[in-house]
Design a protein around this nucleic acid. Structure first.
Length: 698
RNA sequence: GCGCGGUUAGCUCAGUUGGUAGAGCAACCCGUUUACACCGGGAAGGUCGCAGGUUCAAGUCCUGCACCGCGCACCA
């Protein structure tokens, strides 16, 4: 066979990859409509939409690689394979990224017109989206760009608002004064998944409260405390009865306290007595609800004390604590301080500001009935998890989920199509923006809040396929698999299950594959402050996409974090070159004709079957390693060496080289698509490896 | 506190139903007679965290413990 000139030089990814990608894209086969019809069931995967607010990071490279492996494998298996790409406006996250940019420029969103801010963030997002599309292409993603979606596409916005309307009418959404997580820096409420706990060691104060001693770590919230709560079975306080009034001297003068008995009080903790601040504590709020107690705001939305604090009014809580404890000391109300009280403090997951629980009038989703259906779906085996221990984690969370606050006080997001009554505060869904008057006669004003991002991305499998009406939905939903990071097991996965069940009576996906985080070579989490963040595009420039892709996959067990080292990628760059040279040898030495040494092909078939089983079971980390081992250490080291011999066996082996090599390229293709396709173009001009049949196809 | 992972060769990690311990990288020796030095050949390296148990047989199953990581929930 004549040798192709290209093969005489070492493999150069940079000159081939873009050319090959164009070849694929122009073939039209990323769009399954252009694939030959096939009786097999379709395969579908929806890309978790990257937040369009920055550049691709190593985690993106991992998910693109895994999803592309799945898509290419199933396409070669003859399935109508659809991978829908998309991008997320990522409400709060993006707004924060943009606010940091503003901050650097000495600007602030609070000094801008909302519509100007929106326009700027919009432009910023669209620009990022373009870069990310290019980067995803460079990673070799065989996704169908003709179906690309963005969570702010007009039809998506409309659909999301319709979902709100439907849920409102179905009594699954209510408006209410409830405790929310308030970030005073960002001036918005947050859901529980947008907050984190931080361990702090702070002083713990014992205060004289009439005849009682109460303990607190937050004396600055205590101004309005007029209920003193104890356990009904606590013998120490048996002489006090529910509703007893006690006059006592408090921070700013005499008050009257009311005794409340509630079983939620821990008799072992502190003195067994506490006062409550229902406006600024979830637990206290619940006690107040049970006993129908008054609630009063102590801290304003900026974190400053309100007039109820008397002389401390208008002082920020961060400064007030010391001043207040001084005053308590003077009044002999401060009995003791434990300096080393360890507890966890809820903070904003983006800025680490302490979350101030506040009562706020917001929209909430009733989770219980929805979560029950999701649980049923998982319990009846309609959704499988890889690795399977995440099923347990999922179940735990769904069993314990609480109502979901979907209102955000930020501009960057999908507007909530609602009206609020100025007098009675009742809320209505109003899709067409027509309502003007409340049942109570009050004036309705437009809700200025936007949806929590997860409210739209929770509907992602449906939205990406054109819900509510599209043929795609009938063909590709439920999707075959959702592949995403394990950190999204609570934030995202349950919401998609819930929305698909609610809107379409279907699970959103049949399988969930969760990958781990990509850490640096020492196994440490990548972070900008540590300076160990790797840019996947830079790695591609150095080693080639194929090398990066297979390095991300080999040995990367589902659900487990991965340490990515340059040495590993370099090793696979060598592998790409090895493949190149194997091809050269095969071209130079392969002989045509039927080989009598069919046992080599039989041996290969067995390995191919084994690898196929791995692919079917999401064991890409094993499949990739097996084909690597076979190609390098069996085919190259042994079979090729055998074929060099000048005897009958050598002659027979020469005849089997090309058939086996072609099959190897097919199996390797999903993992290393560029180099394999480039070689295919050389040995089978005019044909596309991307749509060749997988060696095992039963 | 509850839960979930992990602990295997110097490093990073595989090891699917229990059947004589694997890879990559690094280190060591030899090799440049044409596919490839981005290479080949060879050798070396592990009481599979600890302690029990089940079994003919345990890295793999069971129990307990230790350490590391992560998640969830919290006490005012």
């Amino acid at each position: 066979m004549a040798i192709d000139e290209k093969l005489l030089k070492p493999y150069d990814p940079s000159t081939t990859e873009q050319k090959i990608y164009r070849l694929w894209e122009e073939s039209g086969f990323f769009n399954p409509d252009n694939l030959p019809n096939n009786p097999r069931e379709p395969f579908s995967i929806i890309m978790p939409p990257p937040n369009a607010n920055g550049r691709l990071h190593a985690g993106h490279a991992l998910f693109v690689t895994l999803q592309d492996i799945m898509t290419r494998y199933h396409r070669m298996r003859g399935q109508k394979s659809l991978w829908v790409p998309g991008f997320d406006h990522a409400g709060f996250e993006t707004q924060i990224v943009y606010e940091r940019k503003l901050e650097k420029e000495g600007r602030s969103r609070f000094e801008m017109k909302p519509e100007d801010l929106y326009r700027e963030i919009y432009d910023f997002t669209i620009e990022n989206k373009k870069y990310m599309q290019d980067d995803i292409r460079r990673l070799g993603a065989s996704c169908d760009w003709s179906r690309e979606k963005f969570t702010l596409d007009p039809e998506i916005v409309k659909t999301v608002q319709q979902t709100f309307d439907k849920m409102f009418k179905d009594d699954l959404i209510y408006r209410g004064d409830r405790i929310v997580n308030w970030c005073a820096k960002h001036q918005t409420s947050l859901s529980d998944v947008e907050t984190e706990f931080e361990e702090r060691t702070e002083p713990f104060y014992y205060l004289q409260y009439g005849p009682f001693v109460i303990g607190t770590s937050r004396p600055e919230t205590k101004f309005g405390d007029k209920y003193v709560v104890m356990h009904p079975n606590d013998k120490r306080y048996a002489k006090y009865k529910q509703g007893d009034k006690i006059d006592l001297e408090w921070i700013n003068g005499p008050i009257t306290a009311t005794v409340i008995k509630d079983e939620s009080v821990d008799m072992e903790f502190g003195t067994g007595v506490m006062t409550i601040t229902p406006w600024h504590s979830k637990e206290d709020f619940e006690i107040a609800e049970r006993h129908k107690l008054e609630k009063e705001q102590i801290i304003d939305w900026k974190g400053k004390l309100l007039p109820i604090a008397g002389e401390f009014a208008d002082i920020h809580i961060s400064k007030a604590r010391h001043m207040i404890t001084e005053k308590l000391k003077e009044k002999n109300l401060l009995l003791k301080i434990d300096e080393h009280y360890k507890h966890n403090v809820k903070v904003c997951f983006k800025c680490n500001t302490i979350i101030e629980p506040q009562i706020k009038d917001q929209w909430f989703v009733k989770m219980r009935p929805l979560a029950d259906r999701a649980l049923d779906a998982v319990n009846s085996g309609k959704i499988k998890f890889y690795p399977d221990n995440y099923e347990k984690i999922f179940r735990y969370w769904m069993e314990n989920t609480i109502d979901w606050n979907i209102s955000r006080q930020i501009i960057w997001g999908i507007p909530i199509p609602a009206k609020i009554c100025e007098s009675c505060k009742r809320g209505y869904s109003d899709l067409d923006d027509k309502m003007t008057t409340c049942e109570c006669g009050g004036i309705l004003r437009k809700d200025t809040d936007t949806f929590d991002t997860w409210f739209s991305s929770g509907q992602w499998t449906l939205l990406a396929l054109g819900y509510p009406k599209s043929k795609d939905l009938d063909i590709y939903h439920p999707t075959s698999v959702m592949e995403t990071g394990h950190d999204l097991i609570f934030k995202w996965i349950p919401r998609m299950v819930i929305f698909a069940l609610y809107l379409r009576e279907e699970v959103a996906f049949k399988n969930v594959y969760l990958h781990g985080l990509v850490n640096d070579e020492k196994g440490e989490k990548m972070s900008k402050s540590k300076g160990n963040v790797v840019n996947p595009i830079a790695l591609i420039d150095t080693f080639g996409t194929d090398a990066l892709r297979i390095a991300l996959v080999v040995g990367n067990t589902p659900g487990t974090d991965l340490s990515l080292s340059r040495d590993k990628i370099k090793g696979y760059k060598n592998f790409a070159n090895k493949i190149w040279n194997i091809t050269r040898f095969v071209q130079e030495n392969a002989q045509e004709g039927n080989s009598s040494t069919s046992e080599l092909m039989e041996e290969f078939k067995k390995i191919a079957e084994d690898i196929t089983t791995d692919m079917e079971n999401y064991r890409f980390h094993l499949a990739s390693e097996k084909i690597y081992q076979y190609i390098w250490h069996r085919f190259a080291d042994e079979i090729i060496e055998e074929s060099k011999k000048n005897d009958e066996k050598g002659e027979q082996t020469k005849k089997i080289l090309l058939p086996i090599w072609q099959e190897c390229l097919k199996i390797l293709h999903p993992f290393m698509p560029f180099v394999t396709e480039e070689i295919w173009q050389i040995i089978n001009p005019g044909k596309l490896l991307m749509i060749e049949s997988w060696p095992i196809n039963d």
